[in-house]
Every structure is written in structure tokens, then in C-alpha cells.
Design a binder for these strands. Structure first.
Lengths: 168, 168
DNA sequence: ATAAAGTTTCAGAAAATTTTGAAAGTTCAG
DNA sequence: CTGAACTTTCAAAATTTTCTGAAACTTTAT
């Protein structure tokens, strides 16, 4: 595969992957583009490479910066803003993991906990089944949540992964 | 919290969670409903509980059955089809994990591998940066892929999680 | 065979999400 | 200040995804 083709496919695939995981296509593609760029890119560079509007670039970049996986960079003697990606895959995956767990997993875990601890549920067969399932889900999601924290939220994720690989 | 309220919130939250993770809301809500149901539900039961159309129930249920996390069940003396959820959280999460990894992660892993092994890339600074990033992503995603396999695709996931909890 | 009961399909409607583009806002050199 | 360079905003348009509902199809009891 030639460079041009590989680059195009990589950006395209990263975009598809993103949308399947609830991150929008443009955001994912901009990250992809910045990940492989050897130097900072401006809004105009990104608009041109991905053939998308200024507004779209601006909004997507803002989110990427909010997530902490893209940084603003000012080049001397140039008023334009440039952007670079966090290139350490462990660092940015930690950040994505943190944001997504916080936003998406935690509310569910809290609801499950609250329901699981409710004293008002438990008499009829229907309510018993409900309580039982909620307790199981609660136990499961707390465990997964803990693992996610250890893997993605602590700086030891990489080490942990290596240990798992070594021992299992 | 009272049962009615808890049930409603659970189904609602499960739906939101589903859509954030790329599973559609209705599918997630039907699974939630079946998870806590003490007996099999018919298409009509689901339509009524979730206030959605027959077509929607039919399509969503088909997917859930395809994924292997909901089963058809026929009740004696009744022509209607009934449905029950796989209630073992480990079993259904294995299945969801398998389907999603296969569909969503594997294509990316394969592309990264292919690019990483390509001999045609590597001269200019741009191409070097590209190759370097692809190699890192490849290493990372293969590791995460392996972990996902061990956690979700093998029947030892639960044990593995306990071990991790114990030792780390 | 027929008709009632139940299931599936899918074109179009509705809803949700994403993107555009132009106007408003900001910054800064002169 | 002023205006050129650049960034941000956001209403409306485009696109994508989901849902509906009615017709077609299948199954089964009589």
C-alpha cells in the first residue's frame, strides 16, 4: 500500500470507528489527521485535507481540546492557531476513557446502586426479579468500572496490561 | 424509590446508555425490559410497555436474537411468540463483546497491521511520522484487543476480573 | 380450503445528528 | 483608533438514523 492510500484509509477507518463508538466522524478524522501529521496544522489545513467547513473544524477541534487529546500551539511570527495531537496513545486513551466513563458509565452505575439499595422494593415476584437483576448488574458494572479506572484512569494502565499478558 | 419509578428510570437509563455506545435506544430498552421481566413477554406486551410500533419491536428483537442475548420462547397453548432475555450478565456481555469487537475493532486492527507491515512507507519525514504512529496504534490496539478477548470472549472473564481485583 | 392469528417487510415519515456558511466577534499591528 | 487577519457562533440545510403503519406473508385450527 502506498502512503497516500494508507493515509486516506487510515483517516476514513478512524472516522468509521469513531462513529460506531459514539464519537462523531469529523472529530475522529481530525484526531487521525493530527496524529500522523509531522507538524502542527491550522484550521485551514484541516478544512482542506478533510474537505469540511470552517465551522465544523472549529467545533470539532474545540471538543478535542476539551477532552485534552489535542493541543493548541502558536507558531512564532504567525497569528494563526495551530493544533497538534497528543501522540502518546496511552495518554490520550486515558483521557478519552476518563471522559467517557464519567459521562456514560457513572450515571448508570449510580442509578443501579441507588435502586439496589432501595428498601422499598421486594415483595411481589415481579419486584423480586427486578431487584435480583439490578443487583447483578450493579455488581458487574462496578467491577467493569473498577477495571476501566485501573486501565485507563491510572497512569499504570500500560503496566497493568503487560502484567495481565504475562500472567494469563 | 418506588418500584414503578425505579423500573421506568432503569429502562430509560439503559436506553440512553445504549445509544451512547452505538446500540440503538429501542434495542437497549427492550433488553432492559426483558431482563427484569419475571416471565416471557410477547411483541404486544413490549409494544405496550415501551409505546412503540410493531415494526420497531420486530426489528429490534430480531437483532437481539441475532446477537444471542434474547431468546424466543413458545408457550404451550398459545400461538404467539414470547421472548426472554439471557439473564446471566456475563453470558450476554460476552456475546455483545464478541459481536462488537468483531464488527468494530477487528477491521481497524487489520488495517493498522496491514499498514504497519507495508514496505512502501518510510522515506520522507511525513511518512516516517505516519509509520511511527501506525506502529504505536497497532501495538496498542492489539493489546486492548487481546484483553477484550480474554475478558469477554473466553468463558474465564469473570475469573480474570476477580484475579485482577485480587492482585492489583 | 379458508380464515383468523400472528409475523415480517419496507417505503415513507419523523426525529436526531451533523454540517454549512455567513455574520458577529476578537485580536493586534500600525 | 482602524482595519485586516483570524476565530467563534448559530440558524438553517443536509444527512443519517430510527420509527411507523399498513400491506404482504406465514402458520395453524377447523
Amino acid at each position: 500500500m502506498k502512503y497516500g492510500e494508507a493515509k486516506e484509509k487510515f483517516i476514513e477507518t478512524w472516522g468509521v470507528l469513531g462513529s460506531q463508538w459514539g464519537i462523531n466522524k469529523t472529530m475522529a478524522q481530525i484526531q487521525a489527521l493530527l496524529l500522523i501529521a509531522p507538524k502542527p496544522l491550522s484550521t485551514d489545513d484541516i478544512m482542506e485535507e478533510l474537505a469540511i467547513s470552517r465551522g465544523n473544524v472549529n467545533m470539532s477541534i474545540r471538543q478535542l481540546v476539551d477532552w485534552g487529546i489535542v493541543y493548541k500551539k502558536n507558531l512564532a511570527g504567525d497569528r494563526k492557531e495551530y493544533f497538534i495531537a497528543e501522540k502518546d496513545v496511552w495518554k490520550w486513551s486515558h483521557k478519552v476513557g476518563a471522559v467517557r466513563k464519567q459521562r456514560e458509565l457513572n450515571p448508570a452505575i449510580e442509578l443501579l446502586k441507588e435502586i439496589a439499595n432501595s428498601k422499598e422494593i421486594g415483595k411481589t415476584e415481579e419486584e423480586k426479579e427486578f431487584a435480583k437483576q439490578i443487583k447483578e448488574l450493579n455488581a458487574f458494572s462496578s467491577q467493569i468500572g473498577d477495571l476501566a479506572d485501573k486501565l485507563f484512569l491510572s497512569p499504570r494502565g500500560e503496566l497493568l496490561l503487560k502484567l495481565i499478558k504475562m500472567f494469563l
